[in-house]
Every structure is written in C-alpha cells, then in structure tokens.
Simulated assay, not measured.
Amino acid sequence: MAKNALQAQLLKAGLVDSKKAKKLSKQSQHAKRTGDASNIETKKALAEAQAKKIEKDQKLNQEKQQILEQKTLHANIIQMIKQHQIKETVTGTENDVSYQFVDQSKIKKIHVTQKLYDQIVAGHVVIARLEEGYALLPRPLADRIDAKLEGFIVVSNDKSDTELDDDDPYAAYVIPDDLMW
C-alpha cells in the first residue's frame, strides 16, 4: 500500500508496481534511521544557509546603524546651528542691507545690518542652510560643522579659497567681493 498520494497515483497509472514502491519506501525509512550521506549534506546545506542569513542580517544591521548615525549627526548639526546662530538680522528697517548670494543655482537675499554685512564679506560670518531658511554663524563653528558633515554651509567668503593661476590673463583685474548687485 502506498504511503503518500504520489505513490498511489503512480500505482494506479501503472507506472510503478507495488514491489518497487515498497522497496523505495523501505530505502527512505532506512536512510532516515541511519542518517545517510544525503542527510549529512542537507545538514551542511542548512548550516551554510544559516551562516549566510546571519551574515546578511549583520550587513543589514550595519547599514541601519549607519543611517541612524547619519540622522543623529544631521539632527545634532541642526541643533548646533539653532543654538549658535547670530540673531541680529533685521527685516524692513532703514539701516538694513541686503546680502545676495547663490544657493543651488538660485539667487537668494537676506537682510542684515551693515556690521553683519561687512563681517560676511570679510569671512568672519558664514551663511548656513537651516531647514527652510538660512542662519548666520561665526566662522569657527561653521568650520567645525563643515568638517563633520558637508552641505550646510552656503556662503563662506574665505580669502584662502581664491587662488590665482599664474597663467590667468585677468589676474590684474580684481573683482571686489562686496560688489552690490
């Protein structure tokens, strides 16, 4: 008598006789009891699959940890900017000066006092991106932020960044940084 449905179907179809079916079932039972080589191979394959799964899980955990660290660093930098931003910006008074700069190929404008304007031009104050707007930061803090994570500093008028080429035909014609648009 057949032990499973497939053996029963094969017997009914006449593809396998009852002697062969009994022999095959006895062989499979014997292999199960004695732990044949096929059983050892399946154990090895199972162990390899588990090792691969553990390695894959560790890799995913590392990626998640890196993403979490990036988010934490980003939040810390935003908090630093909010805490240390210069709040002397003015809006709509007679003494304000508009400072225009380029951010992601768009011209932006902020209104500041003349003193802040001079500090921005001199490079002592830096304009940083803060969520939807901009913040003014002291130069040392901006350098620390830029060292940790780039992308926050929008305007940094550093005199050492402008290196002149020896072959530049327009080197004698200096363009002032404080040019009003």
Rank of each mutant, 00 (worst) to 15 (best):
S156N: 13
V102C: 05
A172E: 14
D146G: 01
Y99S: 00
L149D: 03
Y134L: 07
D158E: 14
E132A: 11
Q119N: 13
Y117M: 03
K115C: 02
T91E: 12
D118Q: 14
L137Q: 06
K87C: 03
L164Y: 10
Q114P: 01
T162V: 15
D161K: 15
A122I: 07
F101H: 02
L130D: 12
A172D: 14
A171P: 00
L164D: 08
G151E: 11
S105N: 14
I86D: 11
V121Q: 05
A147T: 07
Q119R: 09
I145C: 08
T91V: 09
V125I: 10
V97D: 01
V154Q: 08
Q83D: 15
L137N: 06
F101I: 05
T113Q: 04
V97P: 00
G151F: 11
D177P: 09
G133C: 04
T113R: 02
N95A: 09
V90R: 08
V97H: 08
S98L: 10
D118R: 13
T162P: 00
A135E: 04
L141C: 10
Q100L: 10
V126S: 04
R129T: 04
A122T: 11
D161V: 11
V97A: 01
K148V: 00
R139Y: 06
Q85V: 04
D143I: 12
P138W: 02
E88K: 15
N157W: 05
V90Q: 11
T93P: 01
T89P: 00
L137V: 05
I86G: 05
H111K: 07
P140H: 09
Q100E: 11
H84R: 07
K108A: 04
Q119L: 14
G123Y: 06
Y170T: 12
D96Q: 11
E131Q: 12
S105A: 12
T162M: 07
P138A: 07
G92Y: 06
T89Q: 10
P138T: 10
V174A: 11
Q114A: 09
Y117I: 00
I110E: 05
L141K: 08
Q100C: 10
N95Q: 07
P169D: 08
L130G: 01
Y170C: 12
A171H: 13
